[in-house]
Design a protein around this nucleic acid. Structure first.
Length: 582
RNA sequence: GGGGUCGUAGUUAAGCCUGGUUAUAACGCCGGCCUGUCACGCCGGAGGCCGCGAGUUCAAUUCUCGUCGACCCCGCCA
């Protein structure tokens, strides 16, 4: 049907008669002469309909409109002098059409492909039109490259690619499951996997040594700019490894992807930070290191303070945490806005102290002793114009609030170097965290994560147990995470005990794994990367929807197909399901 | 579950704060002209449930409330 792709027509083809096929991108009708840009996946080339070459083709070309699908036959010519277009790759040639065929017509489109983006719901409803846009096509070509790099890299490193079931078993921990009714077992349900966690561990126990899968995962939770209910992970598991082996392997993959997608290597090797340091210094387990602005614990300055808020906090075992913003001129309104922002982030209050005319000024300065002012000035090396922001609260709350506030300050005052990418491994996560909702400890990573030291060494102080767990963070966004797993039955049972999962429940939910752990399970661990998030970040895009061909809206709808939708009574009857919508 | 932004020709926006005119522009569409354009140009034309529903008012695109949809955030996301 065609000899050549549109975007690949070049000077080498001059003089040849070729057949091309593609879409009419733009048409320029001069009456006596008609130009059209013919587009396919490779790019565009100008085709010319001239009555001097073919009166019939020229006349027929009066009919063609945008997005008509054409097959054209014509001779490739060098463009006449002064008419070359240096802005397009095929701009020094054109195809003089001797005959053409309209393979398909097109109605006028609901939006123009070459103009400003229409709103996203229209793009999603007519996704096939959106996908025709060259800048969108670039994204999915990049996505394809990323699949290939991943497969090549992991294959070279001894990994085997597997598929694991999508119709699987609901697990009690973690995100909400999507469920699928079983027709053959009335009243029973499959769950779509949140991740192939247990299957990949079983594959290690099955002796495959190294597993990977580029796999869809499903989580029935609310959506965000970087979260979809179904998303893709690069899932990796390795046998006979420790933390360092997994990080090295993962880092190699990220380097390879970054080099291909960004066309450069930067920021490697990836620095490390423990979870505890990240929380103390940046107030988050995924710090954005594109700007520094560290948090400082200034509790000791106020040990003897007469300022009621600080005094109460310290007496209650809390801490006082501050950060300093230097080199910016803040108005009173900026400060008030910052206080409101901090309150929205959950702060009980935010105190600002500004150095102006060599004196500290603040609504609270009258409550501070001279030595406290001096210590504060020293601790933050205050110069005129600098502002210290302070929060006093329980340790976790103070860190968390200040972490968010730090990000707010970074964004509001332009401290973030948008042109850079800062990767970070965060290591040594706590194994557990206490859930106020469930009134028990829950696994911070997942219930199969191995502690650094045996749980038996801890007596009650369970929140201090460190896990062999790690996350990869890029510019404040988590793009991967994993752990070394428990590979012995007794250790896994200890973990379940801490999680208050009774043995019979554990056996009911994960019996196959526990049994397997008793039959020669090798030490193993792994990591999973958020494939969509990596693409979004590496391509500099704002939304995960931009890297997914058919994404869902914030309410989980597909605007093109209309999913989710009601199903008929016949289907419900087969499933023996009644629906009650409350 | 909660907070916020947005919704006006096919599309992208303006108008709304401060209620009253024929609701404006660009692109697209339709008709005409044009042999070197490439965001072609020129002339003419059609095209509107101002998301939907209430309320306030003599009068609502404009103000208020509700609702639907899209988006951003909190909760949630092992």
């Amino acid at each position: 049907m065609r000899d050549k792709y549109c975007g690949l027509v070049s000077r080498d083809d001059i003089g040849k008669v070729i057949e091309l096929a593609g879409w009419v991108f733009r048409r320029r009708d001069h009456g006596g002469l008609i130009f059209a840009d013919l587009r396919d996946i490779t790019g565009i080339v100008q085709v010319v309909f001239s009555p001097e070459l073919s009166r019939e083709a020229h006349e027929q070309a009066g009919e063609i409109k945008q997005e008509y699908v054409l097959k054209v036959t014509g001779r490739v010519e060098k463009r006449p002098p002064e008419t070359e277009n240096p802005n397009m790759p095929t701009g020094d040639v054109e195809v003089l059409v001797s005959s053409f065929e309209v393979l398909n017509a097109s109605k006028p489109l609901p939006f123009q492909l070459d103009e400003e983006e229409p709103n996203e719901s229209l793009r999603l409803k007519y996704r096939y039109l959106d996908l025709r846009r060259p800048e969108i096509q670039k994204i999915f070509i990049a996505r394809h490259k990323a699949y290939k790099i991943t497969r090549d890299y992991l294959t070279e490193n001894g990994f085997f690619e597997f598929e694991t079931p999508f119709l699987t078993k609901s697990t009690p921990e973690g995100a909400r499951d999507f469920i699928v009714p079983s027709r053959l077992n009335a009243g029973m349900f499959y769950a779509l996997p949140q991740s192939p966690q247990l299957f990949k561990q079983i594959l290690m126990i099955g002796g495959f040594d190294r597993y990977f899968q580029i796999v869809r995962c499903f989580r029935d939770e609310d959506l965000r700019a970087d979260r979809q209910p179904e998303f893709t992970q690069i899932d990796i598991e390795m046998s006979f490894v420790g933390v360092e082996d997994v990080l090295a392997l993962g880092e190699g993959l990220v380097i390879a992807l970054y080099r291909e997608l960004k066309g450069m290597s930067a920021g490697f090797p990836i620095p490390r930070m423990t979870y505890a340091d990240a929380m103390e210094r940046y107030g988050t387990d995924k710090p954005d290191l594109r700007f520094d602005l560290p948090l400082a614990d200034i509790t000791n300055i106020f040990q003897e303070t007469g300022f009621g808020v600080f005094k109460k906090t310290i007496e209650g075992g809390g801490i006082i945490k501050g950060l300093v913003l230097k080199g910016k001129t803040l108005s009173r309104k900026d400060l008030d806005t910052a206080v409101d922002a901090a309150k929205d982030m959950g702060a009980g209050g935010l105190i600002w102290i500004r150095k102006e005319n060599d004196a500290l000024q603040s609504p609270v300065v009258k409550f501070l002793k001279d030595e406290e002012k001096a210590s504060l000035t020293g601790a933050f090396d205050l110069a005129n114009g600098d502002v210290v922001f302070i929060v006093a609260d329980k340790r976790n709350k103070a860190n968390e609030v200040m972490g968010r506030f730090r990000q707010y300050i970074g964004e509001t005052f332009g401290l973030i170097d948008k042109g850079t990418d800062r990767f970070l491994w965060v290591t040594d996560f706590p194994l557990l965290e206490y859930s106020e909702v469930e009134k028990r400890y829950i696994a911070r990573h997942h219930p199969f994560t191995s502690p650094k030291e045996s749980i038996r060494n801890f007596n009650g102080d369970y929140e201090s147990i460190i896990a062999k767990a790690y996350d990869l963070v890029l510019n404040g966004v988590e793009i991967g995470g994993g752990s070394i797993r428990n590979y012995r039955m007794d250790e896994q049972l200890e973990m379940f005990r801490l999680l208050n999962i009774k043995e019979e429940e554990a056996v009911e939910k994960f019996g196959f794994l526990l049994e397997a752990l008793e039959m020669g399970a090798p030490p193993h661990g792994g990591i999973a990367f958020g494939f969509d998030r990596i693409l979004m970040m590496f391509l500099g895009l704002e939304s995960i929807r931009d890297v997914i061909p058919f994404p869902k809206t914030q309410k989980g709808a597909c605007l093109m197909t209309g999913a989710p939708s009601k199903i008929g009574q016949k289907q419900l009857n087969e499933l023996k399901i009644n629906t009650i919508v409350r």
